[in-house]
């Protein structure tokens, strides 16, 4: 039974791709109006989890419920309607390269609403003002830095005032100033708009500094979940290795291999 406070509920989700099991019974509750960080080592399927929530992928089994709708069971049209309540910030920004900054932010409004042009103009400028890029409205995506690209993408993803926003690795490859700006924006947007935010990242410090709840995924399972303070005191060695960034531990430094002596030709009969 989905908790009333949960906006998203994943229960026993199993998902495989190309014969590899990505998730093996993952269950996560994402509370309404809060920032939830999904963390884990690279390649554990964090982005895949967002695509499952957004209905771009279907699980092999298990349930994914978003705002009371079972996503895998939705018909195409219903799914597209549900997505109008979602915003997603992609790792690359995913701006439309043939449209200016202004037109990128205006795009969802032009497609989904019948607002008059002057109102779209004002809303776009307000969204760009919120991310500090009102002055960059005439630029093309190719003229933006990586941090600016993500801020424009953020403005676009909140253009229709969504209930849910998903951030896919928002801090990756950002300089400290751009990262600080993004941290502030995510926090401010959540508090001012009351958004439910899902933040996928492996940047531990930044994520824990803004999230209300976090869960860590590894080996296809949730290995730890709770508030940032609870996670810091989590008894699991694997959780502590990830949070502290230790190079060796339950997640081994070496890729599985045969004995080194065999590979170097040192075993058996060397004289």
């Amino acid at each position: 039974m989905m908790s009333l406070r949960s906006y998203i509920s994943l229960k026993d989700v199993v998902f495989s791709r190309s014969g590899r099991r990505i998730f093996d019974g993952v269950s996560i509750e994402i509370p309404r109006g809060k920032i939830t960080a999904i963390m884990g080592p690279s390649g554990t399927g964090k982005t895949t989890l967002l695509r499952l929530i957004g209905g771009q992928l279907k699980p092999d089994s298990g349930s994914i419920v978003v705002d009371g709708h079972s996503v895998p069971e939705l018909r195409r049209k219903e799914l597209y309607t549900l997505r109008e309540k979602m915003g997603m910030l992609f790792q690359s920004g995913a701006l439309f390269t043939d449209l200016s900054v202004f037109e990128n932010v205006a795009f969802p409004m032009r497609v989904h609403t019948k607002l008059p042009e002057d109102m779209i103009h004002d809303i776009v400028l307000m969204k760009l003002e919120a991310v500090g890029l009102r002055g960059a409205r005439k630029l093309m995506p190719s003229e933006l830095s990586g941090g600016m690209t993500r801020r424009v993408a953020l403005a676009r993803s909140i253009a229709l005032d969504p209930e849910l926003i998903m951030y896919d690795e928002p801090f990756t490859g950002q300089d400290p100033i751009a990262m600080g700006v993004l941290v502030k924006l995510i926090r401010d947007l959540n508090s001012s708009m009351g958004l439910t935010s899902v933040l996928v990242s492996h940047d531990v410090q930044e994520s824990l500094s803004i999230c209300h709840y976090a869960c860590i995924i590894a080996d296809g399972k949730v290995i730890g979940a709770g508030t940032p303070a609870e996670l810091q005191d989590h008894p699991s060695e694997q959780v502590q290795q990830f949070l502290q960034g230790h190079p060796d531990g339950p997640v081994p430094f070496h890729y599985p291999s045969s004995e080194a002596s065999e590979d170097f030709g040192l075993s058996g009969g060397a004289s």
Binding site: R51, G54, Q56, Y80, T81, L82, R83, E84, M86, G87, M88, F90, A94, F107, P108, V111, H112, A153
Partner: peptide, 8 residues
Amino acid sequence: SSMEMMGV
């Protein structure tokens, strides 16, 4: 993908 996630 971003278009899909915008409901387009």
